[in-house]
Simulated assay, not measured.
Amino acid sequence: MRSSVLSSLACMAVLALPGLAHANVGVAFVHGTGKQTNALADYWTAPFVDSVRQGLPNPANYVVINCDFEQYMWDPEAAGCLAGQLTTFINNKKITSMVVITHSNGGNVIRWILSNPTYDSRYPKIISTIKWVDALAPSSLGTPLADAVTAGNGFEQSLGWLLGYKSEAVTMQQTSHMAFYNSNYLYGTAGRPALPRQLWAVVGTDVDSSPVDSDSYCGGYTLNVGLETTQNWLDDCSDGFLECSSQGGAGYVWLYDTEFATGGEPLSHNQSRRNCFGLDVILRNDV
């Protein structure tokens, strides 16, 4: 579906704008939940970012966002910070076409911008510059794990390493809360208006954490063990943090992990922000 849609859009764009072939293309990496000050090292890792940006005509046209996504998506520290850093990137690099690669809750923050163009004077330029969004394991419908943390039961301590303790972002990602936001403030989910720029989700379907399987060590073996444990509270189809239905709940499903991953390996929630099983190559070719 994606290839046919994009081919049609590309043909129309070229016919309407002959100069589009000379667009100055950039890519923005938008992290998920957490207060990041060095997302390149602490969230994505340099090997992942460096591999993906090689797909650009000018590999220097990239930005790694560092914002406080422990806040509600609309807060100045979240969407406001993201808008500021994207605007600076667009202006300084003279970017005319931008692919946004985001992970987890970052998909909700960028959807807020796309869905509410009049909320901030910077949003319209950002929206017009975005080519499309590649959303890696987006938490579009929330997660039952956020429900468990917010409930404050004994499960809370075992989940803190994964998504934090009762931050605004965790509260927001409760399934009932995301249902409310999706119905009232966000575009792209069933029954709601389409997003002004297409969002394409990469869905992680399972977690492997066998000590004798080398694939289980990509992205960190200990983290994958933890994600396989939390998977017990989710649907059979999940990446250890998000159910597949949530990841594919907004925009379009681009790929399920086993459709492209080397050896048909699944991508855990942590592996979907690493150069595991060819994910970086898929994204490199896309930008």
Rank of each mutant, 00 (worst) to 15 (best):
P196F: 08
F180P: 01
C276N: 10
R273L: 07
F180E: 13
K125N: 14
V253W: 02
G240I: 11
T175R: 08
L9W: 08
D75T: 09
C237L: 06
L195G: 03
P47N: 07
Y165P: 00
T230N: 09
V253N: 00
C218L: 04
D239C: 05
G219N: 08
V170N: 08
V27A: 12
Q36R: 13
G80V: 09
N38C: 02
V100I: 15
S128W: 04
N24E: 10
D147G: 08
S176L: 11
S8P: 01
F180M: 12
C81N: 08
V149F: 03
T88S: 14
L40P: 07
D213N: 15
P138S: 05
S268K: 03
A83D: 06
C11A: 14
S238H: 03
S158Y: 14
S268P: 03
N38T: 01
F89G: 06
S214L: 09
H103N: 07
E70R: 13
W254I: 00
V64M: 11
F48T: 11
P193F: 11
M172F: 15
V149I: 14
L283T: 03
A201D: 00
Q231A: 15
G219P: 07
K125Y: 04
I282Y: 02
T262A: 12
Q54R: 15
W233T: 10
A261G: 01
D215H: 12
E70Q: 12
T189A: 13
S245E: 11
H269M: 04
L114P: 09
V133P: 03
P266I: 02
N38A: 08
Y256E: 00
A16D: 11
G154W: 13
A261W: 01
V207Y: 00
N91G: 02
G84Q: 09
W44V: 08
E259Q: 12
S8G: 12
V49W: 01
G249R: 00
A148K: 15
R2Y: 13
Y119N: 13
